[in-house]
């Protein structure tokens, strides 16, 4: 499998880990591995808006840092004890995050170089 596809799998892992950490287990995952960009959307029902959602938005919309990809990307989605959201933010170009009608939706975009 190509490196890029492995990264897609790890990004999904990390997003699921975030939802699970907030006790959200009924999820819809939509993945579009396009020619120009990877787009992953995860949605789930959520009674309360997670406290850290604004921070998550900030982190996932921080600038992509390509230099971290080949060095640290294997940490993504790897551990059941720690989150790698900073690293996730470095691997994606931008993210749309919304909480409406008790539905939490996170979509991340990663341009394919």
């Amino acid at each position: 499998m190509t490196n890029e596809r492995m990264k897609a799998i790890k990004i999904v892992d990390e997003l699921i880990a975030y939802f699970f950490a907030h006790q959200l287990t009924d999820l819809t995952i939509d993945l579009n591995y396009g020619l120009s960009q990877l787009e992953i959307s995860v949605q789930g029902s959520c009674d309360q808006k997670p406290d850290d959602l604004d921070q998550l938005k900030e982190v996932l919309n921080s600038e992509r840092q390509e230099e971290l990809e080949e060095y640290y990307s294997s940490l993504l989605g790897e551990s059941r004890n720690y989150h790698e959201l900073n690293l996730l933010g470095a691997l994606v170009d931008s993210a749309d995050i919304s909480y409406q009608n008790q539905q939490l939706s996170i979509t991340v975009y990663r341009k394919r170089s």
């Binding site: 959307s41 919309n61 170009d93 931008s94 993210a95 749309d96 979509t107 975009y109």
Partner: peptide, 22 residues
């Protein structure tokens, strides 16, 4: 996924991103 909404949102995000990069 509602694609039209997504793409609109994406274009806004990209625009914001561009300013940020500058």
């Amino acid at each position: 996924m509602q694609k039209s909404t997504e793409y609109k949102s994406l274009s806004i995000a990209r625009a914001l991103k561009k300013e940020e990069i500058d």
